[in-house]
Design a protein around this nucleic acid. Structure first.
Lengths: 203, 203
DNA sequence: GGCGGTAACCTACTCGTGGTAACTTCCGGG
DNA sequence: CCCGGAAGTTACCACGAGTAGGTTACCGCC
């Protein structure tokens, strides 16, 4: 009768690493919702209760994945920023490190930010609507910028608005007017400087 | 024997409105995941299969909710923008209308952007980490800005980065360097103009 | 080398929830 | 008056999260 693999046992720390790696892979491929605990277990070569012994719940497993990523991200960005000496260069290098990190971890971490749920897809539609609208506005402001740059700027604005709206939800002392002001501070001041005095037009 | 309510029947269009309203309320209170179809059905005063007859699936129901909101949002922002005559004022009024709309629809729509899943909470932790870091950088750039404004600017940058990263995931022709550049175009140029020549310091 | 004891592991379940099949009842038009 | 069909319901299935309790490999100790 089948000399079936004699069920190797593994130390706790090693198993946790294995499970985390498998979870990141499975969640990245199928999305958190669509992924089942059995899929993760199978990839590790173990059964479901083992996962629960280590992480308590499906949510706990996701949380552990995120915690690990969060530590990596902090490490990467602070290191990059520390290599510069002025605030501008620190912001630039930190930002670049952020993009590079996400790119390297592709596609495992995309699902985190894109929330691969149904709502995610639909939200992208709303964002596209806003981005198109704003890109058209910007074209009026800086007519000779290339289209990709225009779209990039529009992405900046849409992302900023979303984040400001969410922030306003928790920090209740911020008014709509103030949020708008903060956005305009950075964005429009920057555009006016870049686009030249053409801004003052509108006859 | 109980003269139980004689089961009023309702036209298709009316029911759809009722269901959509109930769904928005329930999803807003409990979050999409935690909400069950039976909860929505009960709030309408109907049973589950009715929901399926109208919207096909739980996802379909959520999609319909979002579609309605999307239309409202487009209406509100374009109307606001149309009342201005220059691009700057259009951007300002459109943004303001966006914030005001979300505020008015509170708290029903917060769950959409905050994605009230487990990942949502954990992501907020990462964002807080980034926001603190960036706010500290900005303090060096503009030492005499008030703290709330500083935080607001940091929110703008974090939101912009997130969106740019996601955009890069779909538009594969955008490099990390370009994304960083687009962000710096708007943000740092704006900061330099606002903060005065203090930017050029660094000993 | 043998022998507990503990911790890793598995089998076999429960329960809640998305989704569906098939029957019942109300209502408007001929 | 009555009949066709749309609106609703009850009663079910499938599947995945989570768990109770038995089983087995490894480690230390004699």
């Amino acid at each position: 009768m089948e000399p079936r693999t004699p069920r190797r046992r593994v130390s706790r720390a090693d198993r946790e690493r294995q499970i985390l790696d498998a979870a990141v892979a499975v969640f990245g491929e199928r999305g958190y919702q669509a992924a089942s605990m059995d899929m993760v277990a199978e990839r590790v070569g173990v059964t479901k209760p083992v996962l629960y012994a280590h992480f308590g719940s499906k949510d706990g497993l996701l949380l552990a994945c995120i915690a690990r990523a969060r530590a990596e991200l902090l490490e990467v960005t602070t290191t990059a920023a520390a290599s510069a000496d002025g605030p501008e260069e620190m912001l630039r290098r930190g930002t670049l490190a952020f993009f590079a990190y996400l790119e390297q971890r592709e596609p495992a971490w995309t699902f985190l930010y894109s929330e691969s749920t149904v709502a995610g897809d639909a939200l992208e539609g709303i964002r596209a609507q806003q981005t198109d609208f704003i890109a058209a506005l910007l074209a009026a402001q800086a007519p000779d910028a290339d289209p990709q740059r225009l779209t990039g700027w529009a992405q900046v604005i849409v992302g900023a608005c979303e984040r400001l709206a969410l922030w306003r939800g928790s920090a209740r002392t911020v008014t709509s007017e103030q949020a708008t002001e903060y956005l305009m501070d950075l964005v429009w001041t920057g555009l006016a400087a870049l686009g030249g005095a053409a801004a003052q037009s509108s006859r």
